[in-house]
Design a protein around this nucleic acid. Structure first.
Lengths: 238, 238
DNA sequence: CGATCTGTTGACGGCAGTCAAGTCAAGTGG
DNA sequence: CCACTTGACTTGACTGCCGTCAACAGATCG
């Protein structure tokens, strides 16, 4: 790699999306080309990124923050159908609309790609399409895992399942591997947790308190969780 | 097309998988090549097609019947996480295992493809990969739709949602378009319906009886449903 | 005829939803 | 600085939906 090139790639080098996301599939040359159609954009908590049933004008990867995907019924009942953490992708190729809302749950930074150019590069860079396909397969697995949570688990198991999921993802992100204990910030409000778990937020509160009483978790702030024994949490999660 | 060729393609011509499934993306030449790695196989009701967490030795499309995808918790609680009807695909490329069981819910005919050869053709025939990717995106949509059913809907709405789903799919398959009424065979047992809906099978029975009493549906046999007004069913389904 | 499987209906209880009150922390404005 | 508001979270009391247990009906089959 020439010095000039190393400099140009510098911006992306340490980026999670390059390290573990879709940019990881690109060669250096492809990456340089890809950079030209991308730009960083920031969203505030609560801001809508994509509306349901509208043609998406956006294809992006999450650089930081949490994006929640939600669906609502006519009478206002809401269900979170997915959480996107770095370096997950947002947006949909091949013309169909996203049948859900995408909303910033925290402050969010996206790496946005020009939509029209992206579809072209998808054909040109076979690794990109492959990478996106595999992420979609993983998302499908996650969605089906969650169907078990929503269909069959008790309130306590649901809360434990979510804590385990986020504890695992956060330790993987920071330590790069699985650990026995975990300390992490759950960046969602109680009502958002409830919406993901198919519960009322009061029930979420009660179950968190119950897990605290059992010594499975500790809270150093309303959203700062510490899990002394992930194994024990996994046992409770079903 | 030469006469000889028309004859060779004859077997596939009227097949649902050719008409509306992954074979639809193939040119005639590709189809001829694809036929060489495929063979028909039959499964009896209750027979396991794929076990969870084992490396799949199978890639296949559903020719007839219903395949249910299930997950079970350690204590036996079971959740159906997907239903495959003709011409849906079963099996997973790129090495990962299927984290669920695939079981024949009815008598099932699959068109099975040699696994090793299939992965090769996936790279060779770009339309095949594209088609599979799009099916995966549709399955993800369906899974997320179902998360709303499992997380937020009442028992009555759940049963109505399933009936609507299967009524729609069956009228689409037979008439090729949406209709106002529907008569169809729900090929699942009550306990399987319950497992898909996250309910007990007794509750499913009760809700079916309740819908019958309301005049939303009629039953000419335990599994033969008739819906005089799909609109009314949709209203109830939430 | 009994055995088995599938489906239906009733009685009862428990888990989680609803309604409500209250705590706590962080603004906001006088 | 203090009174007030607001939003997030917690906890309690009560209710109701749905799960569990149970009895029974109908169909199929040996």
């Amino acid at each position: 790699m020439t010095a000039e090139r190393a400099c140009k790639l510098g911006h992306c080098g340490p980026c999670v999306i390059r390290q573990r996301g879709i940019c990881g599939s690109l060669t250096e040359d492809e990456l340089l080309q890809f950079r030209r159609i991308s730009r960083r954009r920031t969203y505030e908590p609560g801001e809508t990124i994509l509306s349901s049933d509208e043609k998406a004008d956006l294809f992006a990867a999450v650089f930081s923050g949490v994006v929640k995907l939600t669906k609502i019924l006519f009478d206002g009942r809401q269900q979170v159908v997915g959480l996107l953490l770095p370096p997950d992708c947002l947006g949909r190729p091949y013309g169909k609309v996203n049948p859900f809302f995408a909303e910033a749950a925290t402050k969010v930074e996206l790496c946005c790609y020009s939509y029209s150019a992206f579809e072209g590069l998808l054909e040109e860079f076979s690794g990109l399409k492959q990478s996106l396909f595999e992420q979609t397969l993983d998302e499908l697995d996650a969605a089906r895992d969650w169907m078990v949570v929503l269909g069959r688990k008790t309130a306590e198991e649901r809360v434990a399942s979510l804590l385990l999921l986020l504890a695992t993802r956060s330790t993987l992100a920071t330590h790069g591997r699985a650990t026995e204990t975990a300390v992490f910030e759950l960046q969602l409000k109680r009502v958002e947790i409830a919406s993901f778990l198919g519960l009322s937020y009061e029930t979420v509160c009660r179950q968190i308190s119950a897990l605290k009483k059992k010594g499975i978790i500790r809270l150093t702030g309303p959203r700062r969780f510490s899990v002394p024994d992930l194994e024990a949490l996994a046992d409770i999660s079903g």
